[in-house]
Design a protein around this nucleic acid. Structure first.
Lengths: 197, 197
DNA sequence: TTTTGGTTTAACCTTTTGGTTAATAAAGGT
DNA sequence: ACCTTTATTAACCAAAAGGTTAAACCAAAA
């Protein structure tokens, strides 16, 4: 692993745990096991190091979503595949959702400038498809955006609010992961169940 | 409005926008229109000012939840009432969910020490009730904790990830609020629809 | 009027933090 | 072997940020 990679990984860990404002350059250096000056040698400053980490995180999520949303499948198939694939991915990267949401909240201007490019999740086509299937009579008459919001909520929220969820529902790490494994399939079943005619 | 109240309100605004780590004492003082030294005169330090704000925020949410969860109503009635009341409350305090989730993530030890007292949301009774209604045959056989997670997800997530949701679904502030108004009723309908026999 | 108690402030202090520098070590070409 | 470029570090710096202090202010009591 190169020094730059060591720094990047350390930065990912610290930024995801503490957020941009709470992260300390010294802590990142310690985590990487190198001198603080190396951070500035490899990355210009804190902001740029953060942007690299954030961009990577975001660009891992977004393309996946668009690939599924814009495929040739039916709406039900897309819902099934999205919830399954997304949860699988986030189980491997459990800090990502909260990290992205938090930084979008604390730094909207910066994040929006990233978001407005090719890699932004774009549900336009899927919305049109939902409307078509409603007309065809496959799906009950619902508002497409509400449906999308339901899907996002059910898949993303448990990870974004992981600590709160564990606390309120009294879940150990293992129990939490078991629940998430189950959710890979039950979310789609429930949603489809509630909108199919 | 007393000086202490002015400080408290200013602190709430700044903490909710920037988080604990990102908030600056000077910014809070400016927001309150008073000298920085007054912050330390009324509240010992940043940590204690934050704890006051956080505690207030949390204690506004938790009792509501428990009142509904532990009432004498049926599960369907509880779902209907909870989603409606919670969304109504959060529309008035839209920064609360993200604020609480963020600080729980960045500072789990501290938050847990608060959470472990009387005011913590406790779904134990509701879970037992769900199990009973499943046996009775009113509700389909599902895992109660998964159901609760669905309810929390659908109601809280849109606010916690407000900026992301607006960005991805292309919603103005007004459209977002309209959607949330609709969600006061449709969430319960959909959930009940998907679990009733 | 003077005193007294709580408020409020400007100025100051200390620590933390992001960032720099100059010197050193390692690697690579000639 | 010698020079040049690339990594790496310890020590340092300046600004920001949290927190303190001593003096001023101001109302109500004596």
């Amino acid at each position: 692993m190169t020094t730059e990679e060591k720094i990047f990984n350390a930065a990912r860990i610290v930024f995801q745990k503490k957020g941009f404002a709470g992260a300390r350059m010294q802590e990142i250096a310690d985590e990487a096991g190198i001198n603080k000056a190396m951070l500035h040698y490899c990355f210009k400053n804190k902001q740029q190091l953060f942007e690299a980490v954030f961009m990577k995180a975001f660009s891992q999520l977004a393309p996946q979503i668009n690939t599924i949303f814009n495929s040739e499948k039916t709406v039900f198939e897309k819902i099934t595949q999205f919830t399954h694939d997304y949860i699988s991915f986030v189980i491997e990267n459990p800090f990502l959702p909260q990290f992205i949401i938090q930084e979008m909240n604390n730094n909207p201007e910066f994040v929006m400038s990233i978001l407005n490019h090719e890699n932004r999740p774009n549900p336009t086509l899927l919305i049109a498809q939902i409307e078509k299937e409603i007309e065809t009579g496959i799906i009950k008459p619902i508002k497409p955006k509400q449906l999308l919001l339901d899907i996002f909520s059910m898949t993303i929220f448990p990870f974004a609010a992981q600590i709160m969820v564990k606390g309120i529902l009294h879940l150990s790490d293992i129990e939490f992961n078991q629940m998430m494994e189950e959710r890979k399939t039950i979310i789609a079943q429930q949603i489809i169940n509630s909108i199919k005619k």
